[in-house]
Simulated scan of single mutants.
Amino acid sequence: MKTKIIVQNLKCGGCANTITTKLSQLDNVTNVLVNIESSTVSFVALNAEYALSVKEKLKAIGYPSVGESNRVLSKAKSFVSCATGKMK
């Protein structure tokens, strides 16, 4: 099931690198593509349950989907994720 999620806090290649790395580690999730300009994350998940796990993983690393709460903690997590992505 091909899915696209619009996320918050996505700013640069470091963010994209972290998102791609973290989501590629999830079981039954493939073809992860991040578009910085449109703030979208596209992927193929085995089913809706795995697609939901991607959404939760994105939120956990600081990139909540549009419509979800984007508090200071999420922004701080995305900053750390971004910095980590730049170092790799």
Rank of each mutant, 00 (worst) to 15 (best):
L52R: 14
L46I: 08
I61F: 04
L46G: 01
V54L: 04
S39N: 15
E56S: 06
E68K: 15
E49G: 07
K59E: 05
S65F: 03
Y50R: 04
S38C: 06
Y63D: 02
S42N: 10
K55Y: 00
V66H: 06
S39A: 15
V54I: 02
E49S: 12
A51L: 02
A51E: 09
T40K: 07
S65T: 06
L52P: 00
E56A: 07
Y63I: 10
T40M: 12
Y50G: 00
E56M: 09
N47C: 01
L52Q: 15
E49M: 10
G67D: 04
K57Y: 04
V54Y: 02
L52C: 05
S53N: 14
S38D: 14
A48Y: 11
I61R: 02
S53L: 14
N47T: 03
A51C: 06
V44W: 09
S65H: 12
V41Y: 10
I61S: 00
N47M: 03
I61E: 00
V66F: 08
P64H: 07
Y50N: 06
E56H: 07
S53E: 14
N47A: 01
P64Y: 10
S53W: 04
Y63L: 10
S69R: 02
V41I: 10
Y50M: 05
V66A: 03
S53V: 13
E68Y: 14
A51P: 03
Y63K: 12
A51T: 11
V66L: 07
A60T: 11
S69M: 04
S53P: 02
K57F: 03
I61P: 00
S65V: 05
F43D: 06
K57P: 02
G62L: 03
V41M: 10
G62D: 00
K59G: 03
L52S: 11
F43Y: 15
L46C: 01
I61A: 00
S65N: 09
Y50A: 01
V54A: 03
P64Q: 09
E68F: 15
A60Y: 09
A60F: 08
V44L: 09
V41A: 06
S38E: 13
A60H: 11
F43T: 03
A60C: 06
K59H: 08
G62V: 07
V44K: 15
A60R: 12
G62C: 05
A45E: 01
V41L: 10
V41S: 04
S38L: 08
A45F: 10
K59Q: 08
N47R: 05
S65Q: 12
S42L: 06
A45R: 12
A51R: 02
E49K: 11
T40P: 04
S42M: 08
S42Q: 13
N47S: 02
A48T: 13
S42H: 07
P64W: 07
A45C: 11
E56V: 08
G62N: 05
V54M: 05
S53H: 10
V44G: 01
S53I: 12
A48F: 11
S39W: 03
E56Q: 12
S38T: 15
E56N: 10
A60V: 08
S39C: 13
V44P: 00
N47W: 04
P64V: 09
S39T: 14
L46W: 13
S69C: 06
A51N: 05
T40N: 08
P64M: 13
L58T: 07
E56R: 06
S42W: 04
K55H: 02
S69I: 04
S69Y: 00
K57T: 09
S38H: 09
S42R: 12
S39F: 03
